[in-house]
Structure formats: C-alpha cells, structure tokens
Simulated assay, not measured.
Amino acid sequence: MTAETSATRLTARGAKTRERIVTAAADLMYVRGVAATTLDDVLAASAVSKSQLYRHFANKDEIVRAVIELMGERVILREQNALGRVSTMAGLRRWRDALVQNNALRHGAYGCALGSFASEVADHDDVARRALLALFAEWKDLLAGAIRRLQENGALSADAPVDELAVGLLAAVQGGYLLAQTAHDVTPMASSIDMALTHIESLRPA
C-alpha cells in the first residue's frame, strides 16, 4: 500500500466520521434545540471519540454551522423538487398541502429547521446568521420563480410584485411553522399559508 493510497483512505474515513458527527448533531438539535444539545450528547449519538470530534470541529459553534449547512441542503433540495415546475395556483396549493401534511406527521412539534436555528443562533453567531440569510434568500427565490411562472402564464397581472409576494409567502410559512410548533397543531400553519395564497390569487388579471 502506497502512502498516497493510505492518505486517501484516511481522508475518506475522516469524511465519514465528520458526516456522522454532523448528522447526529442535526438530529439532536432539530428535536432538542441548539442550546439544549451538548457536545457530550453529540459524542454519544455519533459514537465517536472526543479526539475524533475535535479533529474536525474546534467548538460547538463550528458544529452548529455544519448542521445549518446540512439542514439547509435538505430544505432547499426539498423546495427545489416541490417548486421547480410549479406554474399554476393549483400547483402552489399542492405545495402548501405537502408542507402542512409533512408537518402534521409531527403535530407541528419541531417547526422549520431553518427557522428554529435562526431563532437560536442569529443573535450571537454572525457566520451562522449569514448562512441562514443566504438559505432563506434561496428559498424566497424558488417561491418567486413559481410566482413568476404564474405571471408568465397569465394567472397573475403583469404588475404583480413577484419578489414581495414571495417574501410574504415565505413569512407566512415561517410564521405558520412557529404557531404550529407552539400549538402542536398544524391548523394555524395551514391558515397562514392559505391567506397568503388567497392574496396572490386575488392579483389575477381583471
């Protein structure tokens, strides 16, 4: 075995260890919250040693940032798949139904991963805040793309403010997640998104 082969295998093994740490931390932080998840919790859940953890992360903040990156990839991929071809109000309402139904499986208990992280880390970790800001912007752009396709297909008036509508719809989603999390009931989430969609639909050409 050459030194190069050994180094490559070690790098691959290290990548798997890092992935295991981040995945375990993501699961814990999503359910318990960032503040309530300790490094000892992450060590136990990931089944790695303390030396392995510190080989990849200097502190908890670095783990949180890696978790945000992972959760962001999951959320954006989900939204790309759900919104990428939406071009009708019926399609937007199907997107709404999928969000609500998925959250109903947990009785709304855990909220949106990105929203939950934002509420916990944005005030004290500017690196994490900027990462979350970029992820929300990407989500907003996906919504704007769907709304713009409605406009191009004649379902919305030509002067409808696409970007503003996308921001409002994303705010309705995030507010709905928070209310559902508080109530352990997705009804408020469904209502808030419905109101945003009803407003968008009202902007159809006269």
Rank of each mutant, 00 (worst) to 15 (best):
M1Y: 09
A3L: 14
S6P: 02
S6I: 15
A7L: 15
A7R: 15
T8D: 14
R13N: 14
G14F: 06
G14S: 13
A15R: 07
K16G: 08
R20P: 12
I21A: 12
V22G: 03
T23E: 10
A24M: 06
V31P: 01
R32W: 11
R32D: 09
V34N: 03
V34L: 10
D40I: 08
D40S: 08
D41S: 13
L43G: 04
A45K: 04
A45H: 00
S46Q: 00
S46G: 01
A47R: 09
V48P: 07
V48D: 10
S49K: 08
Q52P: 06
Y54E: 04
F57D: 04
A58F: 12
K60M: 09
K60E: 13
D61C: 09
I63D: 02
V64W: 05
V64P: 00
V64R: 02
R65V: 05
A66M: 01
A66K: 02
V67K: 05
V67R: 11
L70V: 04
L70G: 06
L70C: 10
M71F: 07
G72A: 08
E73F: 03
R74C: 06
R74M: 04
L77M: 03
R78M: 05
Q80N: 08
N81E: 15
L83Y: 01
G84K: 00
G84M: 00
S87K: 06
G91C: 02
G91W: 05
W95M: 07
R96G: 07
A98Y: 13
L105I: 10
R106H: 13
A109L: 03
A109C: 06
G111H: 05
C112W: 02
A113F: 13
L114G: 03
G115I: 01
V121K: 00
D123C: 03
H124I: 10
D125E: 02
D126W: 12
R129H: 15
R130T: 12
A131R: 14
A131Y: 11
L135R: 15
K140W: 12
I147T: 13
L150N: 12
L150G: 09
Q151F: 06
L156N: 00
L156P: 02
S157D: 14
V162I: 13
E164Q: 12
A171H: 07
A172H: 08
G175E: 13
G175A: 14
G175H: 11
G176T: 12
Q181L: 08
A183L: 04
H184S: 13
V186Q: 02
A190M: 10
S191D: 13
S191G: 10
T198H: 10
E201K: 03
S202T: 12
S202F: 04
L203P: 01
R204D: 04
R204S: 10
R204K: 13
A206D: 12
A206K: 08
